[in-house]
């Protein structure tokens, strides 16, 4: 049976009068890759910091690996791995010394430390470079070493806070291969990201906006917001002008630019074929499935519009 690795109930954090995280509730199953999407200041990092026991919740509860974060933050720390976009390694120390330091920090005994060191070096592809300074490593390697150092103590839950910032596409792909392999072996991964294409690697996603959970579900489930609103992609050499023109069309709810194309979200129950035929004048248009970006923009927009924040 699958258990929940993370259970969050009405988690709230205020800083003075500012509500950074507002009654957030969700669960993450064991072995799941769970993504946090949201713009800067949406509350992603604050939520992660609370789940890691670094920040006390103002109210609500969070259980990570079965431990209540608010009650026993230190016990949580033994069960989690954490890696941030800074790949926080000691640049003046060698790869080996970094691994040794973090092994010590997590209290690994000598034998476990040796085994885990070998594992991490292999995983990060750094065998034979043990005595290179961490600061001399290129971004992708450093990222994998940082990941290795974060999982030395074999945590069942892994938090990745924008883990692929400043890393080339090839390294990003390799990194995600590692993450997927870890999830397959039962590690629960909670990842925040700005990159919508990366969100495709997640089994389920939560979209945060202004401290609130605006939507949650698998990508397929999230696309349901467009269930009765067709999206038409219209090609153009001048997408901005086209966007402005389409915005005034009676059947169009809203528009947005995607490269050289415009996505027009049609109002409910609009006949797509009639709409495309009505465009005329040599415009290439076709109905498309909503992309994650469409979903994200729509969710954020809806979260903003209905009621002002309390």
């Amino acid at each position: 049976m699958t258990m929940n690795a993370i259970e969050v109930r009405d988690l709230t954090r205020r800083f003075g009068g500012f509500v950074a995280v507002d009654r957030v509730t969700f669960e993450v199953r064991e072995g799941e890759i769970f993504g946090f999407l949201g713009s800067n200041g949406a509350g992603k990092s604050t939520t992660i910091r609370m789940l890691c026991g670094l920040l006390k919740p103002t109210s609500g509860t969070a259980r990570v690996g079965g431990v209540d974060v608010g009650r026993d933050p230190e016990a949580v720390k033994q069960r989690i791995g954490y890696m941030s976009q800074k790949f926080s390694l000691y640049e003046a120390l060698t790869i080996d010394q970094n691994i040794e330091f973090f092994s010590g920090l997590y209290g690994l005994d000598r034998r476990t430390g040796r085994d885990r060191r070998a594992f991490v070096l292999k995983m990060a592809g750094l065998e034979g470079r043990e005595h290179t300074l961490a600061g001399d490593l290129p971004g992708g390697w450093r990222q994998r070493l940082a990941l290795g150092c974060a999982i030395l103590h074999q945590p069942p839950v892994l938090f990745l806070d924008e883990p692929t910032g400043g890393v080339d596409p090839l390294s990003r792909r390799e990194f995600w291969t590692l993450i997927e392999a870890m999830a397959a072996s039962g590690v629960t991964v909670l990842v925040t990201t700005h990159y919508l294409d990366e969100a495709e690697h997640c089994h389920r996603l939560a979209i945060l906006h202004a401290g609130r959970l605006a939507a949650i579900g698998s990508i397929t489930e999230l696309r349901e917001v467009f269930a009765d609103r067709p999206i038409v992609e219209v090609q153009s050499t001048d997408p901005v002008a086209l966007m402005n023109a389409l915005a005034d069309h009676p059947d169009v709810e809203k528009t947005s630019v995607f490269g050289t194309a415009v996505h027009a979200v049609l109002k409910r129950e609009t006949d797509v074929r009639r709409f495309i035929a009505g465009l005329g004048d040599g415009l290439t248009a076709s109905p498309v499935a909503p992309s994650l970006e469409d979903v994200f923009l729509d969710v954020v927009e809806q979260a903003q519009s209905p009621e002002p924040k309390a």
Partner: peptide, 9 residues
């Protein structure tokens, strides 16, 4: 690195 160390028990 401080943040990383804080995440450790």
């Amino acid at each position: 690195t401080m943040e990383q160390v804080q995440m450790a028990p």
